[in-house]
Design a protein around this nucleic acid. Structure first.
Lengths: 119, 119
DNA sequence: TCGAACATTGACATCCATGTAAAGGTCAAA
DNA sequence: TTTGACCTTTACATGGATGTCAATGTTCGA
């Protein structure tokens, strides 16, 4: 599909789709006329990118993570590079930290709301 | 305490402490000579701000949340404004969404790492 | 064949969180 | 009294994600 359709289906502006490409997050084919040609599976990938960005994960990190977050739960290990593994562990641990923190804040908000309701 | 000490104790550069003030996140007193005078309790608050920023929560949101995330678990409901309540609920739900998303990505990474280890 | 809808690249603009520097005031200690 | 450490405000710079626009090419339907 072309960029406009992908933009419609994902809600991600064409500007951003080109940006993601520039950042190496997606690599559409090209039609003979130079138009980008997006494969069906990229719909899911773009949505995943959006959710990650919305969660505060920068494109650089997303780029590193993407090959591992395979859409289908296929978990195809292409390359058991120990350096890659270390990076992934590191990244996961950072995620875990953020999760704990956000949970704490979520709970604090909930407590506060509850306290409001009992007043 | 003055800005330098607070910076030392929190690891947050003075530049950022002034920025947080500009954004309405902290409001130090002033000494007669114009120096900022930070209360002891602001140490915790600054650390909290840092953690939130590191989790991708923008200053604007932090500003709204801060009065509710009281350092001491005191939960003093100053103002049972229904509009404030709605904003807090909304904010909490957004947090919850992010948490779920991050958990998913964390789990996906973990699965991938495990798969690497079994290869 | 012409116009509308859609592509392309490239550039410039903006917001946010930061770094950094300039020009100057305060204060304590040598 | 001067030096050095610390503070002030102001400003300009940067990097990342995004908006917007200009100039141009492609395709398709009236």
């Amino acid at each position: 599909m072309r960029i406009g359709e992908l933009a419609n289906r994902t809600g991600v502006p064409t500007r951003m789709l080109r940006y993601y490409e520039e950042q190496g997050l997606i690599t559409p084919l090209r039609l003979e006329n130079g138009y980008r040609d997006y494969d069906e599976y990229l719909v899911e990938r773009v949505l995943k990118i959006r959710r990650l960005l919305d969660s505060g994960v920068p494109t650089r990190i997303i780029r590193d993570m993407l090959p591992c977050l395979n859409d289908i739960g296929s978990t195809i290990v292409a390359d058991p590079d120990p350096e890659l593994r270390a990076m992934l562990v590191d990244q996961r641990d950072k995620l875990a930290e953020r999760i704990v923190l956000l949970q704490q804040n979520r709970d604090a908000l909930t407590r506060y709301i509850d306290a409001m309701d009992h007043a």
